[in-house]
Design a protein around this nucleic acid. Structure first.
Lengths: 346, 346
DNA sequence: CTGAAAGCGCTAACAG
DNA sequence: CTGTTAGCGCTTTCAG
């Protein structure tokens, strides 16, 4: 613990290293950044001195001088929804050996909050921005347009992008789910979701879902919304409530897998015939579903791939070779699981 | 989209604002930072110009000049374990109006990775560091000791701290769980956990647990470990496996709530008598447990409070008024739920 | 209340 | 291969 090396309490500088090894600051800098040719001998001396002193370069000064910052701003709505940590996983993986580092901000599904976080983060002059959704404040859009760096909006492709976009169409996802449900012969359908007016993607799924049903002349028969609390518990309670109010429902579409899993648990306990008497489906393809008594029908939102593709665009490693303005629409796949009966044929 | 305001593609400077409003750079800077007295008139002119141009201050330059950075480095092992996002929630909340901003790094439970992330982040000269655990590489410790900023190690108090520490004793948590299980009359006990040699807290809980049982002459009768995959599914499979191997077990202690929940689901489906024939307990007090068919016994790890207390120390707002070297040990509370029978009395 | 000068610690761009 | 000279955009400090 007590350490006799002459380390100042704070902030060693290049100069300290330079003096410690008798090499110019410039050459020390070169060695430490692995730039330009330096003789092996001086190189070794520099590294030894830097290590001995415990020198940590000051990126603030470096960034100011070089006008280059290896940071990528990532703004997501929430960390408690497992969806976003998974996207982050994809981003981190793709950025791994690009020298870029993701820095995460959270908007809590509020555009104003997003604006504040964005402002704060842009003031560090990152080399790129990845942010969820296409809905932002006017000010946010202006900042992003003027930042002069790659901007990738992720998760959703239903709308107009600022620069590049990587995601899925939630409207289509909703529509396809409706099609599958109808094809399986279900007719009296309930929808359960969260009371989040600012979760645009959930809203779009619901719109697409309504539209899909409308095509065959069906309307949603009942809805139930929640806010706050344990999603699993809420799913359970909402399911009980909606079925109490409307026992004739033959399908429940949940806006996310967690409440869907809660609904599934309720139905099984209540002795409902799943998927014969009543079908169930969620959305996201969360890993947690794998441990449930039955596999809930769901639709994979391609979370990890979205993160990877977005990161590659920011890193300028997109296979397209484009410099911005890219549009990548991924196709979520329906995973019917065990809670939706096979489609009727003929 | 097309915007006729004369915004350069990148990086407006104070000078631009200064010229646009005919006020010295210095005064513009004062207005924008809300420092020093400025006449309302000039103040208004400056703000107007800054807003019109869409000026975003350059924190890199500001930080270099002022030697002050409003960033707090937070390094956690993982984002996929819901425990850590919850800690982050506490940190964010406590930092809310301190002007400090958390910046998150992930170590993936690897000390070397932590060291790399720490080096990277310290090179931005943050005003404080919060990191999980007490086990770090030698180099990490040195960096932290020499950084000259508040360092708070969180989650765990069993070991020697670098500066401040906020957490619980996982050894004691394990011991107390053992006591409760023994008091309830269970005798043939199995342990199920993850194969993570670098999850020191899980290891310490197991040690404490063993010790608690040893006091009354009991040894763990069977163990099962997993790695990777859906924790819920793994919990289910492991439980089935351990009970197949050793049907006489009357209690299963899971190293985390997720596998515990999986175990619970298995036991209920298999028709085991819970908690009469077999008791179950997890660890963490995760929210997801609330939606399960039964409330799994668990122990709250005080995640949010840990985050809050750590952040307050970094922000210099600790009620103790101390400047570092603080030690806060929180007491996790056993939540017996429905899966451990009442303690035998007499 | 406002401005001018002098750096913060590093790196780009040139010389040797 | 190595060193010198200017800044990067802002804030500190000190004069008005």
């Amino acid at each position: 613990m007590t350490d006799d090396s002459p380390v100042p309490p704070r902030g060693l500088t290049l100069r300290d290293v330079s003096e410690a090894c008798g090499v110019s600051e410039m050459t020390v800098s070169r060695v430490l950044r692995d730039r330009g040719d330096v003789s092996p001998a001086t190189r070794a001396r520099v590294l030894e001195a830097a290590k001995r002193l415990g020198y940590v370069p000051n990126k603030i000064a470096g960034a100011l001088a070089s006008q280059r910052v290896n940071l990528v701003t990532v703004i997501i709505p929430s960390l408690s929804n497992m969806v976003f940590p998974e996207v982050l996983g994809g981003i981190s993986a793709a950025l791994e050996d690009t020298g870029l580092q993701p820095v995460v901000g959270v908007s809590h599904y509020a555009a104003e909050r997003e604006e504040a976080v964005l402002y704060e983060m842009l003031s560090w002059r990152p080399s790129g921005v990845i942010l969820a959704g296409l809905e932002h404040t006017q000010a946010s859009r202006r900042m992003l347009e003027n930042a002069g760096i790659p901007v990738v909006e992720i998760m959703d492709v239903d709308g107009e992008a600022i620069d590049s976009v990587v995601g899925i169409s939630h409207q289509r996802a909703g529509r396809e789910m409706a099609d599958a449900i109808v094809a399986a012969g279900y007719r009296r359908i309930g929808f359960l979701g969260s009371k989040m007016p600012h979760d645009h993607r959930a809203r779009k799924r619901l719109e697409g879902f309504r539209e899909g049903l409308a095509r065959v002349g069906i309307e949603i028969a009942a809805t139930e919304f929640y806010s706050g609390g344990s999603a699993l518990a809420k799913g359970r309670q909402m399911t009980e409530a909606i079925l109490a109010r409307d026992p004739d429902l033959d399908f429940l579409y949940f806006s996310n897998d967690m409440i869907g899993a809660g609904g599934l648990l309720h139905c099984l306990e209540a002795g409902h015939d799943v998927p014969g008497g009543i079908g169930l489906a969620g959305f996201n393809g969360l890993e947690i579903l794998e441990g449930m008594p039955r596999r809930l029908a769901t639709m994979d939102a391609c979370r990890r791939e979205i993160g990877e593709r977005a990161a590659r665009i920011v890193a300028g490693r997109s296979p397209s070779g484009l410099i911005g303005g890219e549009r990548v629409e991924l196709a979520p796949v329906l995973q019917p699981g065990d809670t939706i009966r096979p489609a009727r044929t003929g």
